[in-house]
Computed example of a mutant assay.
Amino acid sequence: MTQHKGNLFILSAPSGAGKSSLYKALLEADSNVRISVSHTTRAPRTGEQHGREYFFIDSSSFLDMIAEDAFFEHAQVFDNYYGTSKKAIFDMLDQGLDVILEIDWQGARQVRALYPDAIGIFILPPSMKALEARLIGRGTDAEDVIARRMAKAVNEISHYDEYEYVIINDDFEVAFEQLQAIFVAMRTRTPLIREIHSDLINDLLS
């Protein structure tokens, strides 16, 4: 497998655990981090822009990309397709950028099968009660939707041990510091230093 100059991170969590708030704070604080933008066949919602929230394409083009093995992972959700482009990810990694894939445990398995060096981070809530309170506090979902999210959360959380790192998001500032620490530490891994600083290492050893 080709060595890239950036790290690929998988970020997963049950809905309401604070995953989006954490990665958005990291994007603001660290110019070397990018969030993956997925392809989708669903129509843009009000305020969404092509290339920012998603790459919006038609079903025929999406199926062509599947046939070309262009995706790391893809899934059909109801009547729409969603997928993560290999080329888009590799282009950013080759630039030395760290890339976050915000996907669930099933998508994470697909990515790991193709890119074993991906680094998994799972965000846990401090309790199920706190998780429910956060979902209610968002004020965006009806009671039945919240109930479905809570039921789904148990299954999602059961896969936490498939990830290299687990952050319990009780105190946001502490969780954010832990997330930052993981990203910084991964940039000093031997294979990356060998790739990025090969001239220096060769000079030191000559």
Rank of each mutant, 00 (worst) to 15 (best):
residue 68 E to P: 01
residue 50 H to W: 00
residue 30 D to K: 12
residue 206 S to K: 09
residue 73 E to Y: 15
residue 102 E to A: 08
residue 14 P to G: 12
residue 36 S to Y: 04
residue 11 L to T: 00
residue 137 G to W: 04
residue 105 W to S: 02
residue 161 D to K: 14
residue 35 I to T: 10
residue 33 V to R: 04
residue 140 T to V: 08
residue 179 L to R: 00
residue 125 P to W: 05
residue 128 M to D: 06
residue 77 V to W: 08
residue 83 G to L: 00
residue 17 A to R: 03
residue 65 M to I: 14
residue 154 V to K: 04
residue 123 I to R: 07
residue 47 G to T: 06
residue 12 S to M: 02
residue 154 V to N: 04
residue 132 E to S: 04
residue 49 Q to Y: 09
residue 14 P to F: 03
residue 47 G to S: 01
residue 50 H to M: 09
residue 58 D to Y: 03
residue 52 R to K: 12
residue 185 A to C: 06
residue 87 K to P: 03
residue 171 D to T: 09
residue 141 D to V: 05
residue 89 I to C: 10
residue 149 R to E: 06
residue 52 R to F: 04
residue 156 E to H: 03
residue 57 I to V: 13
residue 100 I to C: 09
residue 175 A to E: 01
residue 45 R to F: 00
residue 192 L to E: 02
residue 48 E to L: 11
residue 54 Y to N: 12
residue 108 A to N: 07
residue 201 I to T: 05
residue 132 E to C: 00
residue 51 G to W: 04
residue 176 F to Q: 04
residue 138 R to I: 02
residue 35 I to L: 13
residue 144 D to F: 09
residue 77 V to C: 11
residue 138 R to M: 13
residue 139 G to V: 12
residue 107 G to E: 03
residue 187 R to L: 06
residue 23 Y to R: 08
residue 13 A to I: 03
residue 16 G to D: 14
residue 127 S to F: 05
residue 91 D to F: 10
